[in-house]
């Protein structure tokens, strides 16, 4: 128990040092622009199919569940608003972050982990290139930038499939759905909730890179890094969401 606690505190300390190093290289020149764009494509563009599918699923499920409940209370007219508010405030951001954490977190952990165990990171360093700048900072910045954009895509897909699913059961014009749905939407339902996904992206990038660059133990270590990157990033995202939701409520009340 004591050893586990000490191990956890050591891990936390190393994470703090890592974050400090990553932040310094991310904000100071020279910037790795080409690699950053490549990572934004890898993390953002290539996550689109998964995010679109997840968003579509959220919207469908929300519509199916919410419609029955509202009918029970004779409040079916609130369906568009409930779907859209739910998607914008929480479902869209959290599901996008968890889905991307799985794909990107594992991918970064595995990629950097395999580079670590095959000395590729050392080879980059010996080539007089800062591996933190080239590999870590670019991935963290790319995750931070792309998560809000992916969330917007997921939100759009969820809102549209929410309408389509409702439309299958009863006639509802898109203009009615959107008009009534967005009546209740305010600034703090959209902007802060989407912006908080930048924090999620930061956490996913940091954890994935940290676990990857600490990999030891050959191919088994790479697997452990990929798995732990997903698990820890997902946990951090959920915990951060609790804090950020409260913060948004307090700041934008």
């Amino acid at each position: 128990m004591k050893a586990s606690l000490i191990g956890f505190l050591e891990w936390l300390g190393e994470l703090g040092v890592f974050c400090s190093q990553a932040f310094r290289t991310a904000v100071s020149p020279p910037y790795e622009g080409r690699e950053l764009l490549r990572q934004m494509d890898e993390i953002g563009t290539k996550s689109l199919p998964l995010v679109i599918l997840s968003g579509a699923a959220i919207g469908t499920v929300l519509s199916l569940h919410t419609r029955d409940t509202l009918t029970l209370f004779g409040a079916k007219s609130a369906l568009p608003g409930l779907i859209i508010l739910s998607v914008l405030r929480e479902s869209g951001p959290i599901i996008t972050a968890l889905v991307v954490s799985g794909r990107v977190g594992a991918g970064i952990g595995a990629e950097l982990g395999s580079m670590k165990v095959t000395d590729q990171i050392d080879a980059i360093a010996v080539s007089a290139v800062d591996p933190y700048r080239l590999l870590v900072a670019t991935r963290i910045v790319a995750c931070t930038v792309m998560l809000p954009l992916l969330t917007i895509v997921a939100d759009f897909c969820a809102i549209m499939t929410g309408w389509l699913t409702t439309r299958l059961v009863e006639p509802m014009a898109l203009s009615y759905y959107i008009g009534h749905g967005f009546e209740l939407v305010q600034f703090n339902d959209l902007i802060p909730t989407t912006a908080k996904t930048a924090v999620f992206g930061l956490l996913i990038g940091v954890v994935g890179c940290f676990q990857g660059t600490r990999t030891a133990g050959g191919t088994a270590g790479v697997g452990r890094s990929a798995t732990s990157a997903v698990v820890i990033a997902s946990l951090f995202v959920i915990l951060a969401d609790v804090v950020l939701v409260k913060l948004i409520i307090v700041m934008f009340r």
């Binding site: 095959t118 000395d119 080879a123 980059i124 010996v126 800062d130």
Partner: peptide, 17 residues
């Protein structure tokens, strides 16, 4: 890194990217 530019390192397993 300026000094490293004067070095050429061959890793045990080549460490190709």
């Amino acid at each position: 890194n300026e000094i490293r530019k004067k070095l050429g390192f061959l890793f045990q397993h080549a460490a190709l990217y």
